[in-house]
Simulated scan of single mutants.
Amino acid sequence: MPYSFYLGDMQLPIAPSKLQLKINSNNRTATLINEGEINIIKLPGLTDISFEVLLPNMKYPFATYVDGFHKADYYLNILERLKTSLEPFQFIVTRTAPNGDYLFDTNIKVTLEDYTITEDADKYGQDVGVSIKLKQYKDYCTKVVSMRTTTTVNSKTTKVATVEQNRGSNKVISKTHIVKNGETLWSICQIELGDGSKYSKIAKLNSISNPNLIKVGQVIKLG
Protein backbone atom coordinates (compact mmCIF):
# COMPACT_ATOMS: atom_id res chain seq x y z
CA MET A 1 0.00 0.00 0.00
CA PRO A 2 1.72 3.26 -1.15
CA TYR A 3 2.02 6.01 1.46
CA SER A 4 2.80 9.72 1.28
CA PHE A 5 3.93 11.54 4.44
CA TYR A 6 3.71 15.31 4.90
CA LEU A 7 5.03 17.42 7.79
CA GLY A 8 3.56 20.84 7.15
CA ASP A 9 4.52 21.72 3.58
CA MET A 10 7.32 19.14 3.44
CA GLN A 11 6.75 15.75 1.83
CA LEU A 12 9.19 13.12 3.07
CA PRO A 13 11.17 11.69 0.13
CA ILE A 14 10.86 8.11 1.43
CA ALA A 15 7.68 7.15 3.28
CA PRO A 16 8.31 5.33 6.59
CA SER A 17 7.52 1.62 6.55
CA LYS A 18 5.81 1.81 9.94
CA LEU A 19 3.54 4.38 11.59
CA GLN A 20 2.21 4.24 15.14
CA LEU A 21 -0.68 6.35 16.44
CA LYS A 22 -1.47 5.98 20.13
CA ILE A 23 -4.84 7.36 21.25
CA ASN A 24 -4.30 8.05 24.94
CA SER A 25 -6.93 7.48 27.61
CA ASN A 26 -7.95 9.92 30.34
CA ASN A 27 -10.24 7.43 32.07
CA ARG A 28 -9.84 7.26 35.85
CA THR A 29 -10.28 4.29 38.17
CA ALA A 30 -11.89 4.87 41.56
CA THR A 31 -12.70 2.51 44.43
CA LEU A 32 -16.15 2.63 46.04
CA ILE A 33 -16.86 1.23 49.49
CA ASN A 34 -18.41 -2.24 49.18
CA GLU A 35 -18.52 -1.85 45.38
CA GLY A 36 -14.88 -2.29 44.38
CA GLU A 37 -13.27 -0.53 41.46
CA ILE A 38 -15.19 1.48 38.87
CA ASN A 39 -14.00 3.13 35.67
CA ILE A 40 -14.85 6.82 35.22
CA ILE A 41 -14.96 7.47 31.49
CA LYS A 42 -13.34 10.68 30.22
CA LEU A 43 -12.80 12.11 26.76
CA PRO A 44 -9.70 10.65 25.05
CA GLY A 45 -6.36 12.37 25.49
CA LEU A 46 -4.10 13.74 22.80
CA THR A 47 -2.81 11.29 20.20
CA ASP A 48 0.89 10.39 20.16
CA ILE A 49 2.44 9.71 16.75
CA SER A 50 5.81 8.05 16.15
CA PHE A 51 7.73 6.77 13.14
CA GLU A 52 11.24 6.43 11.73
CA VAL A 53 12.25 7.95 8.43
CA LEU A 54 15.25 7.59 6.14
CA LEU A 55 16.66 10.83 4.72
CA PRO A 56 18.79 10.02 1.66
CA ASN A 57 22.04 11.70 0.73
CA MET A 58 21.89 10.30 -2.78
CA LYS A 59 19.13 10.18 -5.39
CA TYR A 60 17.19 6.91 -5.33
CA PRO A 61 14.69 5.88 -8.05
CA PHE A 62 12.13 4.76 -5.44
CA ALA A 63 12.12 8.11 -3.61
CA THR A 64 9.79 11.05 -4.29
CA TYR A 65 11.24 14.50 -4.90
CA VAL A 66 8.37 16.95 -5.31
CA ASP A 67 10.57 20.01 -5.83
CA GLY A 68 13.78 18.31 -6.91
CA PHE A 69 16.41 16.24 -5.14
CA HIS A 70 17.67 17.47 -1.78
CA LYS A 71 20.19 15.89 0.54
CA ALA A 72 19.44 14.97 4.16
CA ASP A 73 20.52 18.33 5.61
CA TYR A 74 17.68 20.06 3.72
CA TYR A 75 15.06 18.01 5.60
CA LEU A 76 16.96 18.27 8.89
CA ASN A 77 16.85 22.07 8.63
CA ILE A 78 13.07 21.94 8.10
CA LEU A 79 12.69 19.68 11.16
CA GLU A 80 14.69 22.19 13.19
CA ARG A 81 12.43 25.03 12.03
CA LEU A 82 9.31 23.02 12.92
CA LYS A 83 10.72 22.44 16.41
CA THR A 84 11.89 25.99 17.11
CA SER A 85 8.94 27.85 15.52
CA LEU A 86 6.75 27.12 18.58
CA GLU A 87 3.81 26.68 16.21
CA PRO A 88 1.66 23.64 15.36
CA PHE A 89 1.57 22.27 11.83
CA GLN A 90 -0.42 19.75 9.81
CA PHE A 91 0.60 16.08 9.71
CA ILE A 92 -0.89 14.27 6.71
CA VAL A 93 -0.55 10.68 5.55
CA THR A 94 -2.33 9.56 2.39
CA ARG A 95 -2.81 5.91 1.46
CA THR A 96 -3.55 4.45 -1.96
CA ALA A 97 -4.10 0.88 -3.13
CA PRO A 98 -1.61 -0.76 -5.53
CA ASN A 99 -4.01 -0.03 -8.41
CA GLY A 100 -3.96 3.68 -7.56
CA ASP A 101 -7.37 3.89 -5.85
CA TYR A 102 -7.56 6.30 -2.92
CA LEU A 103 -8.07 4.51 0.43
CA PHE A 104 -8.04 6.96 3.36
CA ASP A 105 -5.87 9.60 5.00
CA THR A 106 -4.69 10.83 8.39
CA ASN A 107 -4.87 14.60 8.81
CA ILE A 108 -4.01 15.96 12.28
CA LYS A 109 -2.70 19.26 13.62
CA VAL A 110 0.42 18.41 15.65
CA THR A 111 3.55 19.67 17.37
CA LEU A 112 7.01 18.19 16.96
CA GLU A 113 7.85 16.81 20.40
CA ASP A 114 11.31 15.40 19.80
CA TYR A 115 13.40 13.69 17.16
CA THR A 116 16.58 11.63 17.21
CA ILE A 117 19.12 11.77 14.37
CA THR A 118 21.11 8.58 13.80
CA GLU A 119 24.11 8.11 11.52
CA ASP A 120 24.88 4.38 11.30
CA ALA A 121 27.13 3.23 8.46
CA ASP A 122 26.10 -0.42 8.88
CA LYS A 123 22.36 0.32 8.84
CA TYR A 124 21.98 3.47 6.74
CA GLY A 125 25.23 3.72 4.77
CA GLN A 126 25.74 7.37 3.83
CA ASP A 127 22.11 8.24 4.56
CA VAL A 128 20.59 9.50 7.83
CA GLY A 129 17.88 7.94 9.99
CA VAL A 130 15.54 10.05 12.11
CA SER A 131 13.10 8.87 14.79
CA ILE A 132 10.24 11.38 15.08
CA LYS A 133 7.63 11.85 17.82
CA LEU A 134 4.61 14.10 17.29
CA LYS A 135 1.70 15.00 19.55
CA GLN A 136 -1.79 16.05 18.52
CA TYR A 137 -2.49 19.77 19.05
CA LYS A 138 -5.88 21.25 19.90
CA ASP A 139 -6.61 24.97 19.83
CA TYR A 140 -7.57 26.42 23.19
CA CYS A 141 -8.16 29.74 24.94
CA THR A 142 -7.95 31.12 28.47
CA LYS A 143 -10.49 33.26 30.31
CA VAL A 144 -9.59 36.48 32.15
CA VAL A 145 -11.90 38.02 34.77
CA SER A 146 -11.70 41.83 35.06
CA MET A 147 -13.28 43.67 38.00
CA ARG A 148 -14.44 47.30 37.88
CA THR A 149 -16.25 49.50 40.41
CA THR A 150 -19.33 51.54 39.50
CA THR A 151 -21.24 54.20 41.46
CA THR A 152 -25.03 54.46 41.30
CA VAL A 153 -27.17 57.61 41.61
CA ASN A 154 -27.69 56.99 45.34
CA SER A 155 -23.92 56.83 45.90
CA LYS A 156 -23.84 53.09 46.32
CA THR A 157 -20.89 51.33 44.80
CA THR A 158 -20.99 47.94 43.15
CA LYS A 159 -18.40 45.73 41.51
CA VAL A 160 -18.96 44.34 38.03
CA ALA A 161 -17.06 41.34 36.68
CA THR A 162 -16.25 41.03 32.98
CA VAL A 163 -15.08 37.75 31.50
CA GLU A 164 -12.87 37.90 28.40
CA GLN A 165 -11.45 35.06 26.36
CA ASN A 166 -7.87 35.14 25.17
CA ARG A 167 -7.74 33.14 21.98
CA GLY A 168 -4.81 30.98 21.02
CA SER A 169 -2.60 31.66 18.06
CA ASN A 170 -4.36 33.26 15.11
CA LYS A 171 -1.86 31.80 12.67
CA VAL A 172 -3.73 30.20 9.78
CA ILE A 173 -2.42 26.87 8.54
CA SER A 174 -2.52 26.58 4.77
CA LYS A 175 -5.63 24.85 3.46
CA THR A 176 -4.96 21.64 1.61
CA HIS A 177 -6.85 19.16 -0.55
CA ILE A 178 -6.06 15.46 -1.00
CA VAL A 179 -6.59 14.33 -4.59
CA LYS A 180 -9.31 11.69 -5.05
CA ASN A 181 -10.12 9.45 -8.01
CA GLY A 182 -11.35 11.34 -11.09
CA GLU A 183 -10.34 14.80 -9.87
CA THR A 184 -8.43 17.35 -11.90
CA LEU A 185 -6.66 20.48 -10.74
CA TRP A 186 -9.37 22.54 -12.45
CA SER A 187 -12.19 20.68 -10.66
CA ILE A 188 -10.41 21.00 -7.31
CA CYS A 189 -10.06 24.77 -7.75
CA GLN A 190 -13.69 25.01 -8.84
CA ILE A 191 -14.94 23.17 -5.73
CA GLU A 192 -12.51 24.48 -3.12
CA LEU A 193 -11.93 28.03 -4.40
CA GLY A 194 -15.05 28.61 -6.50
CA ASP A 195 -12.97 29.35 -9.60
CA GLY A 196 -11.53 26.60 -11.79
CA SER A 197 -9.41 29.10 -13.72
CA LYS A 198 -7.12 29.40 -10.69
CA TYR A 199 -5.62 26.01 -11.52
CA SER A 200 -2.48 27.58 -13.04
CA LYS A 201 -1.86 29.64 -9.89
CA ILE A 202 -2.30 26.58 -7.69
CA ALA A 203 -0.04 24.54 -9.97
CA LYS A 204 2.69 27.15 -9.51
CA LEU A 205 2.14 27.20 -5.72
CA ASN A 206 2.65 23.43 -5.62
CA SER A 207 5.55 23.37 -8.12
CA ILE A 208 3.44 21.31 -10.55
CA SER A 209 4.97 21.68 -14.01
CA ASN A 210 2.07 19.92 -15.78
CA PRO A 211 -1.38 20.65 -14.24
CA ASN A 212 -2.77 17.59 -16.03
CA LEU A 213 -0.45 15.27 -14.12
CA ILE A 214 -1.67 15.05 -10.55
CA LYS A 215 -2.02 11.72 -8.76
CA VAL A 216 -4.47 10.20 -6.32
CA GLY A 217 -3.39 10.82 -2.72
CA GLN A 218 -1.34 13.90 -3.61
CA VAL A 219 -1.74 16.81 -1.18
CA ILE A 220 -2.49 20.09 -2.96
CA LYS A 221 -1.85 23.38 -1.13
CA LEU A 222 -4.61 25.90 -1.85
CA GLY A 223 -3.14 28.99 -0.23
Rank of each mutant, 00 (worst) to 15 (best):
M58N: 15
H177T: 02
K171G: 09
P16I: 11
I188E: 01
V163A: 09
G182W: 04
N99M: 14
P61T: 07
L12A: 07
M10C: 09
T162W: 15
T29E: 08
K215H: 04
V128D: 01
G36Q: 07
A30H: 07
Y3F: 12
L222D: 11
Y102I: 08
D67S: 10
M10N: 05
S174A: 15
P44L: 12
P56S: 06
L82I: 06
V216Q: 04
V130A: 09
I92T: 12
V110Y: 00
Q11S: 02
P44F: 10
N26S: 10
K59A: 13
T84Q: 12
N27I: 15
Y3L: 05
G125V: 10
K59N: 13
T158S: 12
F69S: 02
N107D: 07
V172S: 13
V219L: 05
Y140P: 10
I191Y: 10
T151H: 09
D120L: 05
A121I: 15
K201L: 05
I188K: 02
N57L: 07
A203N: 00
T150E: 11
V172R: 08
S169T: 13
T142V: 11
T152F: 13
P88R: 05
V110N: 02
I202S: 01
L76W: 03
V145R: 13
Q136N: 12
V179Y: 00
G45K: 03
P13Y: 01
T84D: 08
V66H: 04
E87W: 11
V145P: 02
G68T: 01
I41V: 15
S17H: 14
L134F: 07
T29L: 04
T157P: 01
K83N: 15
S17N: 12
T29P: 03
I108W: 01
K71V: 06
Y65A: 09
G194P: 10
K71C: 15
M10K: 11
Y6Q: 09
A72M: 01
N77P: 03
K171M: 14
T31S: 01
K180V: 07
R95W: 15
G196K: 04
T157D: 05
E35W: 12
